[in-house]
């Protein structure tokens, strides 16, 4: 052993050195670091669990929102449909009323026209009568007139009247 350099004091020194080193490292390195690792593990696990909870809550909330949104959309659709139907009805009513009014106006106009025409006819007849009287008076005052001329005059007169 001497030739190999192994000597009891040096050997014991090395053993003591190792044991002290182990105790120091155990107390000041392994324990704090392993504790820290353990703490970090639990903290991360907590954080992950929390995140999962939050995620689920968010998902639930989103689903609720979507449901509400869907309901709102349907409601709006219905409102639009109702309004459209309403407006269509109103439009039809207005058109119907307008048509009716137009028909009334037309009928009144036709009646007025008819009346005017008849009125004109009556006036015309009166004028014709008067005119024929005037003509007659003129002819009679003018002297003799034969049958032929008479007839011609009347004829001419009538055609004038017709043309007028």
């Amino acid at each position: 052993m001497d030739k190999l350099g192994v000597s009891l004091p040096w050997l014991i020194a090395q053993i003591i050195n190792f044991v002290i080193l182990l105790l120091i490292l155990q107390r000041f390195l392994y324990k704090p670091l392993l504790n820290m690792i353990e703490k970090r593990r639990s903290e991360i696990a907590n954080a992950l669990a929390n995140a999962e909870k939050v995620r689920q809550e968010a998902a639930a909330k989103q689903m609720e929102f979507e449901k509400q949104l869907e309901a709102a959309r349907r409601e709006a659709q219905e409102a639009i449909a109702r309004a459209t139907a309403q407006s269509e009805k109103v439009r039809q009513e207005i058109v119907a009323r307008a048509n009716e009014e137009a028909a009334q106006i037309k009928a009144k106009a036709m009646a007025d026209a008819d009346y005017e025409r008849r009125q004109a006819m009556v006036e015309l007849q009166a004028q014709v009568a008067e005119l024929s009287l005037a003509i007659t008076r003129k002819v009679l005052a003018g002297g003799a007139i034969n049958e032929m001329a008479h007839r011609q005059l009347v004829q001419q007169f009538l055609s004038d009247v017709e043309r007028a």
Partner: peptide, 15 residues
């Protein structure tokens, strides 16, 4: 180097 001394390696081996 401590490891090139038999005392060191023997001490560790014994522990």
């Amino acid at each position: 180097a401590p490891s090139s001394d038999l005392n060191t390696t023997l001490a560790l081996a014994l522990v």
